[in-house]
Structures are given as structure tokens and as C-alpha cells.
Amino acid sequence: MQSKSSMREAYGRVLVELGKSCPDLVVLDADLSGSTKTKDFGKNYPDRFFNMGIAEQNMMGTAAGFALAGKIPCASTFAVFATGRAYDQVRNAIAYPGLNVKIIATHAGLTVGEDGATHQTIEDISLMRTLPNMTVIVPADAVEAVQAVTAAVAFRGPVYIRLGRPAFPDLFGDDYQFQIGKAAILREGEDAVIFAAGIMVSKALEAAAQLSVEGLDVAVVDVSTIKPLDRETIVKLAEKTGAVVTAEEHSIYGGLGSAVAEVLGEQCPVPMVRVGVEDRFGESGSPEELLDAFGLTSEHLVKAVHGVRDRCKKR
């Protein structure tokens, strides 16, 4: 069984480290610091930690104010509130002026689990991706999460980082080098390619392993930066394989699948299947039950690869 690590724990730890090397770093939270793991930063740097209470709009506006004065604010809460509850603040106070605010949100997607639809954002990537100036990153494991947060703090401009609630399977070793805007090819292949993000990257690798038993050679790409999208890698793999599947724990509208379809539609139209949440809200359940119920498993990806290859044959 593959080892797993919590991205949130990793986020909490890297924040404390960054607090040492980056005196301008300030952290804001909205009464969820125990869950987002920003609490440890608060313990280590009480002067630079601001619990803003259950008031996400003011938190985003205050973060903008810190950035106006030259600070590097990280604002954390659940993804559904960071992007939905405070959308206008993120749009007008942060993205429009291009302020140096890092929105690092946890508990994204269906894997929030038992709390149900109100807390399961399946549209956050879509909301953030359409904002000019915004960079959007969806790490696939704890190692990538740490590197993404570090890169975001070093980067100048607004960044949205989407983290999950449960522990995700470990994918990357210490030698991995995350770069904003660069997709990581985790497995080469000729017969199809799966572009995945977040927890679906590990599912895509499982699917590719199952397909290799059947003699199919499927590439897997971790598209951790959804904006700016690594168009070059995406077009290259689409050209090479001629059959594309996207996989994300997000609505099939507006997220990774849409972003890839936009690029390929213009530059390299090939048969494609988007695996994600169909046009419906989530519900209560355990994370694994939900992923299964909403078609976000390696088995579903295997079917999707077969489906897209069948369409290629018919062409």
C-alpha cells in the first residue's frame, strides 16, 4: 500500500519555515487555523498571524491592504469560502490590481466528505482561472504542495493554491522540482495521455498501471499549474498519443478539462474525454465513497481511456 501524507500538515510546516527566511510573510485565517494548519505559524510568529474570525470578505480585503504596504500575505480558509464567499474581494481588491496575495485554500473538492455540498467546492478552479493576473496551482501531493507554496511566496503576484482535506498518496521524491507553469510528465506513453490534477494524479497513475497490463502504454501528466497552462507539454502529448483524458476533482465545466479542451480545440483537436464532477453538487459521504459515486476512480479512468481510443479508431 502506498504511503500518504497530508498536504495541510505540509502546508503548516512550510509556512513556519518560510516565516524564518521571509520576514514580510504574514498569515491570515478565518477561524479555521486548526484545520488549514496555519495555527503553527501563529504560535511561532504571533505578531504576523491574524485570525480574522468568520469574515472571509474582510480577510481578503485586509490581505490586500497588507500587500499594498509591501507584505506577502497568505490568506487561508476552506476553498469554498476563499473563492466563493469572497469572490468580489478576490476579484476587485486582489486580482485587478495584481496584488501580491497568496490565497492558500484547503478542503477543496468532494473529498471534504461528510460535510456535504455546502462545503465541497467543485467550481473554485473555474472561478479563479477566469480572473486576469491570477495564477492557479493544484498540487498532487504533499511534496508538490510544499514546493508550490514556496514558489508562490517567491513569485510576485496573486496566486491561488488548492489543497485537499485528506492525505494524498505520496508521488514525488525530494528530487522533484516544481516550477510554476510547468506540467510534470510522470509516465511516458504512446497510446493515450491522461492530464490530471490534485488527487486524480495518483488515480491516473493507477489507471495507467492497470492499462499497461492490457498492453496499453498510457502517459500521465500532472498539470499542477492550471494557469498559466503548460500549452507546449499538453499539445506535445496530445499530438503524440492522439487520445486525451482529463481528470480532476472539480466540475467538468471551467476547470482543468476545460482549460485543456480550450488549448487542444485551437491547436490540436483530438478525441478527448473529461473526467470530473458532472454538472451537479456534491453530497455527504466518506471521501473514497464520494470519489467512487462521482466517477473519480482509476476504474473510471480506465473506461475513459478505452472510450476515447474507441472514438479514435472510428475516425
Binding site: 491592504g65 497588507f66 499594498l68 509591501g70 507584505k71 481588491a93
Partner: peptide, 25 residues
């Protein structure tokens, strides 16, 4: 111009962030 404003209700939050930053510095 010290902040992008126009969507009402947002300036005081930004002012607060800048004020707290000034105190930190």
C-alpha cells in the same frame, strides 16, 4: 491612488491591512 476601489464596502478592510502592516514595520 493607494487602492483599487469602486466595488463598495472594501476600502476599510484594505485600510486595516495597511494600518496593521505599518504597525508591524
Amino acid at each position: 491612488v493607494e487602492a483599487s476601489t469602486g466595488s463598495l464596502g472594501q476600502g476599510l478592510s484594505m485600510g486595516l491591512g495597511t494600518a496593521l502592516a505599518g504597525r508591524l514595520d
